[in-house]
Amino acid sequence: MFEARLLRSSILKKVLEAIKDLLTQATFDCDDNGIQLQAMDNSHVSLVSLTLRADGFDKYRCDRNISLGMNLSSMSKILKCAGDKDTVTMKAQDNADTVTFVFESPNQEKVSDYEMKLMNLDLEHLGIPETEYSCTIRLSSAEFARICRDLSQFGESIVISCTKEGVRFSASGDIGSANIALAQTASVDKEEEAVVIEMEEPVTLTFACQYLNYFTKATSLSPQVQLSMSADVPLVVEYRIPDIGHIRYYLAPKIDD
């Protein structure tokens, strides 16, 4: 028996928003520690890694390890039926071919259940190597979303360049070019608005705008985002989900032909 209950459905709704444009289907691997999801987009350019820890749920029970293969567009349709303040419970029997979502209104006067067919997904799992990154940049997630959106107007790629002076995002194309430079913040009133850079070595890498924009669908999960870069390896874009886990996106760089 697997059962996981969240007092607020909004976390799960936001998680789905954060992955459903990038992935069509994914396996939720559930064990004692919580729920893990790892999947690549169809083009294998990016990889999503989601962790929801058991202790972040209001109730969590997983008697046997279970993999729930879900069609994310169907799951998203179902989660849209939950009110933000509803409690959500995901349930599946051992060896089940369906998963059930139960939504309860705060006053318990409305209880809905939705059963969804599971899919048998034979998806490739990748080992993500432990990496010491040359640069990590922490900034407001809303600011990062705005930068990606603004620069997307100029070209298909964004160059991210991190030095000890700061981080610079650039794009160029038919209409011209754009550069956004952020300096490390000296002092701020709100911690989540700070720009914090840790740099061992300067790094410049180029990434596809389209994917960065997909990642920013996770903005509402966290006030801050962390970018980790090293030369010639995928960028990591991490959103920490308060009290329960994180979502990490890995994006393969573009290289000179």
Partner: peptide, 13 residues
């Protein structure tokens, strides 16, 4: 520029 893929960097488990 050419787009690389994730599988170039991370191996199958």
């Amino acid at each position: 520029m050419a787009q690389t893929t994730i599988t170039t960097f991370f191996n199958s488990r």
